[in-house]
């Protein structure tokens, strides 16, 4: 049974488990799910103590959007470790070819594959995406938005750019390495500097909190966008190293 549970890469039918095992698994999960459902429905809701706490301390955080305040001030350890997780994934997916001089280079292998509709649409869409990303980054201090949303929008613009097949991304270039690691580096540096002032790592002084959060957010946006774009281009083979080392060897 356990051998049949191991993943396969090719077949497309839904399940290879024997019928008895499937019924067994389904009944166990149905029972467990029903118990979870009942527990969820019958549990009384906890009073919003954390929400009250956040709204009381919001004035000291440097921003007005409570979610940004939680992410980048009250619980900034979470965000720091999250960016570290992203960086680890990016390093795991790094190509190890010779270093490339440029981050974005024109594609060399297919001039014929130009999609006219896509490229002309992207002439409008890419500047708009950059504008929206910058807006989300700036407005994150006051309204819904912030580093993650801005980075995701920028990465989506990069994915659209990769789909035109006119450009390749060289993640081995020095610029790309800086872009990928800048978020974590600046986050840690900010934490150390503010820790030297206030005595606690990542504890921002109240008067400079707004500036520090903005600096961290800008660096995090750039790194998140670069890393998410790298994940896509490595999987979709839209980067420079792919023609030489693809699949298993990279």
């Amino acid at each position: 049974m356990f051998r049949e549970m191991s993943p396969s890469f090719t077949d497309t039918h839904a399940s290879t488990l024997p019928r008895v095992a499937r019924v067994l698994v389904a009944s166990v999960i149905t029972a467990g799910g029903a118990a979870l459902l009942l527990a969820t429905l019958r549990t009384d809701k906890a009073p919003p103590e954390l929400a009250v706490l956040v709204s009381e301390q919001l004035a000291t955080s440097g921003v007005e959007n409570p979610v940004t305040a939680v992410l980048l001030n009250f619980r900034s350890y979470d965000t720091l470790l999250e960016i570290a997780v992203l960086l680890i994934v990016a390093i795991a997916m790094q190509p190890h070819a010779s270093s490339q001089p440029r981050i974005v280079a024109p594609s060399t292998n297919n001039e014929s594959a130009t999609n006219l509709v896509l490229t002309s649409l992207l002439r409008w869409l890419i500047p708009l995406s950059v504008l929206v990303g910058g807006y989300l980054l700036w407005t994150g201090a006051y309204a819904p938005g912030g580093a993650f949303q801005a980075g995701a929008v920028l990465a989506a613009a990069g994915v659209a750019l990769a789909l035109t097949e006119r450009y390749q991304f060289g993640w081995q270039s020095a610029g790309a390495q800086w872009l990928i690691s800048a978020g974590l580096a600046i986050f840690i540096a900010t934490g150390i500097v503010s820790g030297m002032v206030t005595g606690t790592f990542l504890q921002y002084p109240v008067t400079y909190a707004a500036t520090l959060i903005l600096v961290v957010e800008i660096a995090a946006t750039v790194s998140i966008a670069a890393i998410l774009l790298q994940l896509f281009t490595r999987l979709a083979r839209a980067d420079v190293t792919s023609p030489h080392t693809s699949g298993a060897s990279s």
């Binding site: 990769a162 097949e165 083979r237 839209a238 693809s246």
Partner: peptide, 10 residues
């Protein structure tokens, strides 16, 4: 690790 141009396109 197919090196044909078709495999290189994203």
């Amino acid at each position: 690790r197919d090196d044909t141009p078709a495999a290189r396109r994203p």
